[in-house]
Design a protein around this nucleic acid. Structure first.
Lengths: 197, 197
DNA sequence: ACAGTCGATTTAACACCGTTAACTTATGAC
DNA sequence: GTCATAAGTTAACGGTGTTAAATCGACTGT
């Protein structure tokens, strides 16, 4: 029996390899096609090795979801540094949300359990998601200093409009070009921000 | 071997039994827990019998989805008969949408591939869904007689806001009581309809 | 040099899944 | 009584997530 040679990799490299592979399969074939064995094949290991890095498939998905929210929160922070005007900030944050969903749809899917992606952990219990919503709520607050309850409500509305439009755009992308949906999205979010005044 | 006795049922009864069972498992345990074997057990048949009624699990889900859209379209028609004012009509249609998602969440999930529900057939190719969108577009048109392109756009926006708010309400239902979300939904849809003028 | 241990990795297995082919069994026709 | 047909079952295939057991290699102590 010959020893198969495998490029030596650090633990961290293998771990991120698993995540990257999962995402790339999801992007190509959809989340329902992502299996532990397929991931293991791609990283040239046997299936149980994946469990050395993640307790379960569920936890793997949860990690990818958290990674998504972390990425989003970093982008939001970038916007906050870039602009001072709260209106501009909220609008730009909205655009980041769109860009994210458009360029990394498989992550957006696992974040919200869309299109066959299914992660058991409730989204709202994710700390990284809490961080994201904190940023948006504060931005709205610096804009409309009202009670916490009102801010929560406005945030809920902002999120609904943004998420709803994005979801529908993805759903109808074969019928209605994404560029057209993007135009509507921009207009909708601009109006939402304007109407906050 | 004793002959197991099974209540005699017509073909139609068995078929609708399959559908009902699938929905009830989905409601109790989520769509990812729905399996052909579990359905077969519940209707007291062996698994292959299910394939006498549906070509595949996918087609079964598609049937449930269509059933959902048919139900929705009937409710919309009912609203049209009940009210004459286009504004009132659109608002009441929005409320029907909310009620439907609230009381039959498992159907709403399969209609939009949410929370582990996954049906391959694209929604927008479903005839029953086309019927539903036709009703809403006409209602908007009788209200704002603009070009077809504009109506399509307004319909897209209406759908986004409604669907987005419903989805988020379901997502956050353990954090934010549904009654509270409903209040926001009503206000949001009322404002949307008003702003159409 | 040899036995023993430890860690990394794989194989094998379990219980489930969707799906299909092959088999059984009961019923009615001639 | 024999045959055909229909209804329903069992058995099987290749897949899934997951875990226990087995393997294999390198290193250690004597």
């Amino acid at each position: 029996m010959e020893t198969i040679e495998r490029k030596p990799r650090s633990r961290e490299q293998t771990r991120s390899g698993i995540i990257t592979t999962a995402k790339s399969i999801a992007r190509r074939e959809g989340w329902q096609a992502v299996s532990i064995r397929k991931i293991a094949d791609a990283i040239e290991y046997s299936a149980p090795i994946v469990y050395e890095y993640f307790d379960s498939k569920d936890r793997l998905l949860d990690e990818i979801r958290s990674e998504g929210f972390r990425h989003l929160s970093q982008e939001y922070e970038r916007i906050l540094k870039l602009y001072r005007d709260p209106e501009k900030r909220l609008y730009e944050i909205s655009l980041v949300q769109w860009e994210f969903a458009r360029h990394q749809p498989e992550i957006y899917q696992v974040m919200y359990n869309l299109d066959g992606a299914y992660c058991t952990m409730p989204v709202y219990q994710s700390e990284t998601m809490q961080a994201v919503s904190q940023i948006v709520r504060q931005t709205i607050f610096s804009f409309i200093p009202k009670s916490e309850e009102s801010i929560k409500r406005l945030y809920f509305q902002w999120w609904s409009v943004s998420h709803g439009t994005i979801m529908l755009a993805m759903l109808l992308k074969d019928e209605q070009p994404l560029d057209q949906s993007e135009q509507i999205y921009r207009e909708t979010m601009r109006r939402f921000v304007r109407d906050l005044r």
